[in-house]
Amino acid sequence: MSTDERRMAVLSAIVEDYVSTSEPVGSKALLERHQLNVSAATVRNDMAALEDEGLIAAPHTSAGRIPTDAGYRLFVDRLQAIRPMSKGERSAITRYLEGADDLDEVLERTVRLLATLTRQVAVVQYPSLTRSTVRHIELVPMSPDRLMAVVITGAGQVEQRVVPTATDYTTGTGAEALARARARINAATTDRRLADALSALSTLHAEDADTEDSLTAGILAALEDALAEERQAKVTLAGTANLARAQGDFPLTLGPVLDALEQHVVLLQLLSVEAGQDEGVAVRIGTENPVSGLQSTSLITSGYAAGDEHVGNVGIVGPTRMDYPAAMAQVRAVATYLSRIMGH
């Protein structure tokens, strides 16, 4: 075993013991609990080297050592594989999640399950619905100079706009012109995704002299608002009480952590982390988090899909002292089953 491999084994042992006991780890305890097959002097030298590298540190009140954020990061990066869940655990996840009737209940069950499995705070991002399509666009005359444009999306969302017009669509001739415009507009947008429908309607706006500019502009505005609303994703979370169980892991108070978790904009910012490509799991540790209130926590996330399309992320927030291999496996497993349900 090389010196680097041996020191990595010592670091891994320190991480495992500290996560298990929440007590700083000394060289004597390492030798008693782990088959390191080296002398006490070698372990002390390795611990000194790890401390010099900033991977472990000594709390003021103890002769033992605890992992630093950098130590946890190296430990996570060196994991050879994410520990798989048992067949029974996987079956339980499937049964629990598939018992839900609608999207809200699926996501509520997802966070409750993940919070229970990991004993951390679980959070899930609602799926991005920018894949919604235009179902129909209706144009309804209200007066000689006003018209109501109604955009109905495939997700059932309705956007309405009152559009001023230069043409009186309440007359017989106007009604015929409106029918032609309605047909052209729906031909360009129906069953297209909102963003694609916007593009198609912009092209129609430029090329079709018969469709009144103000009419097309009003529908474009309604489509843009529908798209903006669907991009305003939301989150749901569970297991906040789990933080109290780990209160000793937070240096001062839980207040900043709880404040950050209450802000859904913050959670969305955190969940926007791209999942790692190798195992589909991303880990942010301590000060790697951009939110000051959460720099005493770690965030583990994984993406979930609907069909072939990534539509959201699911993850956990907890103290940096956590069982990373197990938590990563649990987050990945729940995300995988959520993808299966979303793809039905």
Rank of each mutant, 00 (worst) to 15 (best):
E98R: 14
R112Q: 15
V106G: 09
D101F: 12
R112F: 07
A115R: 01
P141C: 08
E105V: 15
H136Y: 00
Y96P: 09
G99H: 02
P144G: 05
E105H: 13
R135F: 05
E105I: 14
H136P: 02
S143I: 05
V121S: 08
A122M: 04
A100H: 09
A115E: 10
P144E: 11
G99M: 11
R146F: 01
Y126W: 03
H136R: 04
R131F: 12
A100L: 05
S132D: 09
R112P: 03
L97Y: 02
D102I: 08
L114E: 10
L97K: 06
L107C: 14
P141I: 11
P127M: 06
Y96W: 05
E108W: 04
R119S: 15
L107S: 11
P127D: 01
L117R: 11
R109Y: 07
D102G: 13
R109K: 12
L129K: 05
E108H: 10
M142R: 09
E98P: 10
V123A: 08
R146C: 12
R131A: 15
V124E: 03
V111L: 14
G99C: 06
R131E: 12
L114D: 08
E108G: 15
T110S: 15
T118L: 10
L129I: 08
T110Y: 01
A122D: 04
Y126L: 13
L129N: 04
V121M: 11
S128V: 11
L103R: 07
T118E: 07
I137F: 00
L107I: 09
R135S: 11
Y126N: 04
P144Q: 05
E108N: 14
M142P: 00
R119M: 15
V121N: 04
E105T: 15
S128K: 03
A122R: 01
D145V: 13
V121L: 12
I137W: 00
R131K: 08
P127H: 00
E105L: 15
G99Q: 03
P141D: 11
L117M: 15
V106N: 06
P127A: 07
L129T: 05
R109T: 09
S132A: 06
V111I: 13
M142S: 06
L107P: 10
V134S: 03
P144K: 06
R112V: 13
M142F: 00
T110G: 15
T133A: 11
P141L: 08
L107H: 02
E138D: 13
D101P: 09
V121P: 12
P127G: 04
T116S: 13
